[in-house]
Amino acid sequence: MIPEDHPRHAALVVREHLANAMRRGIVAPEGLIAQGRGEAFDYLLGEQTTESAARAERTAAAMLLSARNPVISVNGNTAALCAAAIADLQRASGAAVEVNLFHRTEERMRAITALLAEAGVEVLSGEPERLIPLSHDRALCLQHGIGAADLVLVPLEDGDRCAALRQMGKRVIAVDLNPLSRTAQTATLPIIDEVRRALPAITAACASLTPAEAEALAASVDGSVYLHQAIDSIVRRLQEVEHALE
């Protein structure tokens, strides 16, 4: 039991949830390390969605609505944290959903797919092929899913596959709390925000954009702007903390 008056109650609940998901075979043990790394950067952002991230989330909605074949790529951490939010985003954007894992086993694929389906997600199925130019199992994807996508939303860290997808000519939206990561640096559009805040914000923006607004917003995306603004936000946050200690 986590005391409700604990100052880190929300974060501890998430950690316990992910630990339980690991025991159920949904999250890989390495996924817990990734969660901790993201938490550290969220501290630096003040554990809130910055104005820059909010703009990136609106732009992400525009890109999803404007894409021909958008796909949301889901790993274990994302499924464990955001299954219902993924279902909402799928309905709002019309994007397909495909499970793609680095630590891939058939048991994990079935467990994650079942979790998503229980939340109302329509998960693509079929025989995967090594279509992505990588030497590990994240190369495996569906020809009618990520293989045919012109836009892939990649929640959470995925640096080498993000770069490989870009090399294949695909646009990539990445949700990553670390603006210095390969994922954020490589994505067409980096969203520097916590995934449980980011996905509902993208869903809400999908409902508010007209087709014309979406086309105009998605036409020109400069990911470096969002990286600079995220780093500026972290610098300001650190300065505020420093001044408070004086």
Rank of each mutant, 00 (worst) to 15 (best):
P3G: 05
D5G: 11
H6A: 13
H9F: 15
A10V: 10
L12D: 10
H17D: 12
R23P: 00
R23S: 11
R24E: 15
I33Q: 09
G38E: 00
Q48S: 06
T50P: 08
A53H: 12
R55W: 01
R58P: 00
T59A: 15
A61L: 11
L65C: 05
L65W: 04
P70S: 03
V71E: 03
N75M: 09
I86N: 09
D88F: 01
A92D: 15
S93N: 10
G94D: 08
L101C: 02
F102S: 00
E106Q: 08
E106Y: 01
R110A: 15
A111N: 13
A119Y: 08
E122S: 13
G126P: 09
L131Y: 06
P133L: 03
S135P: 13
H136G: 04
D137Y: 11
L140P: 10
C141S: 13
H144T: 11
A149C: 02
V154W: 00
P155D: 11
G159C: 00
D160V: 09
R166W: 02
R166G: 14
R166A: 11
Q167Y: 07
M168P: 05
D176T: 07
Q185F: 00
A187N: 09
L189R: 10
P190N: 03
D193K: 01
V195W: 05
L199T: 10
P200M: 11
A212R: 12
A218M: 03
G223I: 04
L227Q: 07
A230P: 07
V235R: 14
R237F: 14
L238G: 12
E240I: 06
E240P: 02
V241R: 14
E242W: 04
L245F: 06
